[in-house]
């Protein structure tokens, strides 16, 4: 009997220091409802009183109103997280984790597979397609045909001043390099636009001919 009492009080001492395990706490709480209720509650209270006294926190205003509080709380509902709320919380966490994982996988795939991007972009944007050059910012002089090879950085597989036919033959080789055709095309476009802007600032007429849209028939040429 005394041994059981000591075991419970040792658990009480451990709980005071946050060192009691779940099973011990459950046994203690069960015991605080049983015949040892007063004994254990008073011991718990005194242990804390000693601890506060050691820390210099004891004051004389000590009115034990724990029984009144316990009686008042009897009518209060028990706290418990509802199962539905828990399920929603778990589902929400799963959804976030899945989204992050999907973004990570897609990102890694995109990062590790530049050829896929090259192929797709090359197929979608043919630098020799006239239709893509019909926008207002893409007006070029008639017969203007950019020389892709002129901007290629990697000179190993390129021949400067090659003909259009030779360039077309080299296209697959360009696609395999670090600068896909559409990027080169974009770069040239930017250069030309910048050049035209600068020229108009420096002179009445830019070096790139300016097309007067009022005088030119802009109906797309039918093939």
């Amino acid at each position: 009997m005394t041994e059981q009492r000591d075991t419970l009080k040792e658990s009480l001492s451990a709980l005071m220091d946050g060192q009691a395990d779940e099973l011990e706490i459950r046994r203690l709480l069960d015991a605080t409802e049983g015949e040892r209720r007063t004994d254990l509650r008073n011991a718990w209270m005194r242990y804390h009183m000693v601890s506060r006294s050691i820390k210099g926190e004891v004051s004389a205003t000590a009115i034990d109103c724990s029984s009144a509080i316990a009686s008042a709380l009897e009518t209060e509902s028990v706290h418990a997280a509802s199962p539905a709320k828990k399920i929603f919380e778990v589902l929400g966490q799963c959804a976030i984790a899945a989204s992050v994982a999907m973004v990570a996988i897609l990102g890694v795939q995109e990062f590790n597979n530049p050829s896929l991007e090259l192929g797709t972009q090359s197929a979608a944007l043919d630098p020799y397609d006239v239709d893509i050059n019909t926008g207002p910012a893409m007006q070029f002089p008639a017969g203007f045909e950019p020389r892709i090879d002129a901007q290629t950085v990697s000179a190993g597989s390129m021949v400067r001043g090659s003909t259009t036919a030779a360039t077309k033959r080299l296209l697959p080789a360009i696609d395999q390099q670090a600068f896909p055709a559409h990027k080169i095309r974009t770069h040239i476009d930017k250069m030309l636009i910048k050049h035209a802007e600068n020229s108009t600032l420096n002179s009445a007429h830019g070096s790139v001919p300016v097309v007067d849209l009022n005088k030119v028939d802009v109906t797309p040429e039918r093939r």
Binding site: R41, E57, S66, L73, V78, H79
Partner: peptide, 24 residues
């Protein structure tokens, strides 16, 4: 955590622990 999980008895130990400090 025990009170939040529905064990009202654990709150009694918190009351016993803190009632005098709160009274101060």
């Amino acid at each position: 955590e025990r009170v939040q999980r529905g064990d009202k008895r654990a709150f009694d130990l918190l009351v016993l622990k803190y009632q005098f400090k709160l009274q101060s």
